[in-house]
Amino acid sequence: MTVRKLREWCIERVIFMSGITSIVIVILIFIFLLKEGLAILGHVGIFQFLFGANWYPISDPPQFGAFPLILGSVLVTLGAAAISVPLGVASALYIAEIAPKKTKEILKAGIELLAAIPSVVIGFIGMVTLGPVIKLIFGLPTGLTALTGSITLAFMAMPTIVSIAEDAITAVPRQYREAAAAMGATTWQTTWRVIAYAARPGMLAAVMLGIGRVIGETMAVMMVTGNAALIPHSILQPVRTLTATIAAEMGETVQGGDHYAALFAIGIVLFVITFAINGVAELYLHRTTRR
């Protein structure tokens, strides 16, 4: 009997420890990013790091101003959001409210398929197909621009936006539809004025999570944006994002050096941004499901 009790006790300990690993990992990620990256912030100063206009990590003396990279991320993300939010919300409305059952299944499978494609494959395709098209249309010296990145990322954000927005729309109580229909509203009027309105918080969460995905995306964006760490003046210029900078430059750094620390500091910036976005999105998500 006591052996059984002891075993039970041990198992419960192990399960509890496993239960809190997620918390431990989040804390560890933060600690290790700080541990490796904090030094450079002390060196350069937080303000200078975030708003310095020059990112010349390997010149002598090196300059670590991440502002061009932040602008690059912001530009690409805004572009992607401008494309993916209207398209994503429209598709979610169509799939949830209008599409017949069979079409709906096919469309949802298509969206799931898109989510499954590895980002390096999307980056590769964006590079070899979309890049030349952009180059041709705008008569540019290179097709690898912020716009190319925005379009590519817009599609990568789509599965997140469509599926979460669709859930939010489906969660709108049936009575709303019936009440609207009873008053003689057309499908479109019901969908737009009643359903979309009622599903607002969930759709907002969907958009935020989609944007979170875009900011954090690395490989595809690195392959299609041309990788120039300069302050962009137009969406048709090459840019470099925060994520791409880490991925592209880490290989050349000396472990423990300033450049190495600077890349971890960029990691801190990314971690804080995505943490905030996901936290807020989670709040909105609960607002819909609670009702």
Binding site: I29, F32, L33, E36, T218, A247, F271, I277, G279
Partner: peptide, 18 residues
């Protein structure tokens, strides 16, 4: 929820550091 949203490259940094 937050782990699911951490950028993959940040996981890379974490793996490198730890």
């Amino acid at each position: 929820v937050n782990l699911a949203g951490v950028p993959s490259v940040v996981y890379g940094l974490f793996g490198l550091g730890v």
